[in-house]
Amino acid sequence: MMKRHVIFLSILSISIWSCSSKTYIADLDVNTSEISQDYQEDAEIASLIEPYKKEVTAQMVEIIGTLDKKLTKRRPNSNLGNWFADALKDESSRLYKKQIDFAVQNYGGIRIPSVSAGEITVGKIFELMPFDNKLLILECDGATVKKLTDRIAEKGGWPISAGLTFTIVDEHSEDVKINGEAIDMSATYIAAIPDYIANGGDNCEFLLDMKRYDTEKYVRDIVIEHLRREYKEGETQMADPSKRIAIKK
């Protein structure tokens, strides 16, 4: 990592001179600056930002939950991943008015490494999930679920909800269980999956053919609704350290 100070570097006699050109670079200085707190704000720009900032801030500071322990994002399992995927499963079961077997969230879609214990604001959930991905409900046959767990295994583990467990063996999945039972390749399972993955992102193109129901809600908004509801009911969000993905060495 570079030192975060003003960089002064002189590159001598860079001769990117082309024989057909009339000029060449005689000297190139790099004077890149870090935008630190030492710089004053430009008043015109600050006033252009102000009304937008007011509107954003008013909504971002709302407290929508409390958390008992710090949540941290890790592979293959983490309490942050567990919590996030469980929230998707629980809330989408309500939306779909049907039991969801499991939820999956791609690892890269969660954008901050941790959430501190204590109060959770709307702003924190925006940081966690800035992308406007929608949540889809997919009807998947067992063979396709197996393809998905293989992909998750290959990528080193993604957040998955309670209801799904498996073991990573040499970058593929084994011992896949849904609701505690061995996966049935011809059975149909209901899964809550962000559209990014369901539409083939992160090499999940095999999900494209699955029958789908669009919740028409952003993943982020679903998590926010989940938090709001439980907060109103006086519930605290609990960190769940359970290991849903095992690794066999």
């Binding site: 975060r4 006699s13 001769s15 001179w17 024989c19 050109s21 009339k22 000029t23 060449y24 670079i25 005689a26 000297d27 190139l28 200085d29 790099v30 004077n31 890149t32 600056s33 870090e34 935008i35």
Partner: peptide, 22 residues
């Protein structure tokens, strides 16, 4: 926007045979 990149460049006429790399 943590950094603002800045390259200050000076140019020279490159007359025949005066190209450093050549």
């Amino acid at each position: 926007g943590i950094m603002l990149g800045r390259l200050d460049i000076e140019f020279e006429h490159a007359k025949k045979g005066k190209c450093v790399s050549c």
